[in-house]
């Protein structure tokens, strides 16, 4: 029997930003259908990892290999990675003034469709898709008409990220501290949205600082990232362990 191909394979990944070495040898494999959580203290390199995976050119991969569905990501520019099915829900989504959320999303959805050789959605089909997906994250209509993220509250921005993820139906969803800044109701809504997207052909990398999110999005695996390295991996119970003991001991171990 042939082994199914991993969705994402990260081997000995080193990366730097602004000349500083941040990631120092990450190994991680995500198979289709799995949810992996990464936990770690501030500054440990969580966002750096998500930016490197998404192809942000401000971050430089200095060593190692990243395979996405067997394909070397070095060959793909950021927009090509997105089209291939990598989605990053940003920790700090930027505002894009002057262009409405809907207009932006339509361009994004059709760019992804085009790359797959599919016909672009016309206005009607697009609106149908919006109607279907917006229920998942209970996003308000006026936010769809406003300029992308402009004047959105922190929580609204995060909801908008998950809404976009639902619209774009990626293979791999990377959630970078989507929970931070959300109240408990919003956290539940966002988590329900993510859970609805879980499926056998999709994988998630859920980055969080707090254990709380993992009560709602229950991971298959938990990894602890400290100082640019994964120092421990385990099942969902590892998150609770961390909650009780904190990161201090790991930091200590590193030094």
């Amino acid at each position: 029997m042939e082994k199914t191909m991993a969705l994402l394979e990260i081997k000995n990944l080193h990366a730097s930003v602004a000349g500083n070495q941040i990631l120092k040898g990450i190994n991680l494999t995500i198979n289709p259908g799995e949810v992996h959580a990464i936990m770690g203290p501030n500054g440990s390199g969580k966002s750096t990892l998500s930016n490197v995976l998404a192809g942000n050119e401000a971050y430089e991969k200095t060593q190692g290999e990243i395979l996405f569905q067997g394909k070397n990501l070095d060959d793909l520019a950021a927009h090509e990675r997105a089209c291939a099915g990598i989605f990053l829900a940003f920790q700090y989504p930027v505002e894009i003034p002057g262009i409405s959320n809907m207009y932006f999303l339509k361009a994004a959805v059709n760019a992804v469709r085009e790359s797959r050789g599919e016909e672009p959605l016309d206005a009607m089909d697009f609106l149908d898709l919006v109607e279907e997906k917006k229920k998942m994250v209970q996003i308000r209509d006026d936010l769809l008409e406003r300029a992308v993220n402009s004047g959105f509250s922190g929580g609204e921005k995060k909801r908008n990220e998950i809404f976009q993820m639902a619209m774009l139906e990626p293979r791999l969803g990377i959630l970078d501290e989507t929970d931070s800044g959300l109240d408990i109701d919003a956290l539940r809504i966002v988590s329900d949205g993510v859970n609805a997207l879980r499926g056998s052909d999709r994988g998630f990398l859920v980055i969080t600082h707090y254990q709380r999110l993992l009560d709602y999005i229950v991971p298959d695996f938990v990894h602890v990232l400290v100082n640019g390295q994964i120092v421990k991996s385990g099942g969902k119970e590892l998150a609770l362990e961390l909650e009780n003991e904190g990161y201090a001991s790991w930091n200590g171990e590193q030094q």
Binding site: H79, F87, I96
Partner: peptide, 11 residues
Amino acid sequence: QIFYCNQRGLD
């Protein structure tokens, strides 16, 4: 902003 657009599939 450009990277944000790139990440959503736009070159």
